[in-house]
Design a protein around this nucleic acid. Structure first.
Length: 119
DNA sequence: CTAATGACAAACT
DNA sequence: CAGTTTGCCATTA
């Protein structure tokens, strides 16, 4: 797996991982929110790509990251033994029809909650 | 380099 | 809210 992601992008990915790991328990955020915080205004897809690469990391709760509709878009990318929905419910986030209940209420915006990553 | 794809978002219908 | 179209950026063929 030497290919991985280009080291140049790794920085962007690390930013995403950092934010995802900072998401409080029982909260969720959207790809766009992360992308916006990183300055990648339209890089929501890249955030999703980062999530795809996040599988190589041990503690990246990608299940806390959903699309702006609160829909578990990446559900299919999680292992069957512990589905995304189950993990979210374990965090206190209720899911209905693969969608986050009261998404707007539990939505966690990094650009508003995080003041400085101090990287 | 061009074309197609993708864990998305915004605008419009 | 749901469905369709366009835009964005990186990866792959």
């Amino acid at each position: 797996m030497d290919r991985k992601i280009s080291e140049k992008n790794k920085d962007f990915f690390e930013q995403v991982y950092q934010i995802v790991q900072l998401i409080p328990k029982g909260r969720v955020t959207s790809y766009g929110a992360i992308a916006n915080y990183l300055g990648a205004k339209s890089g929501a897809r890249m955030v999703g790509w980062a999530m795809n690469a996040s599988h190589q990391l041990p503690n990246v709760p990608a299940h806390r990251v959903v699309n702006r509709l609160g829909l578990l878009s990446g559900k299919a990318h999680f292992p069957d033994n512990r589905p995304m929905q189950e993990q979210l419910e374990a965090e206190g986030v209720l899911i209905k029809e693969d969608k986050v209940v009261d998404f707007e209420t539990i939505f966690w915006d990094p650009s508003k909650e995080i003041e400085d990553l101090s990287l």
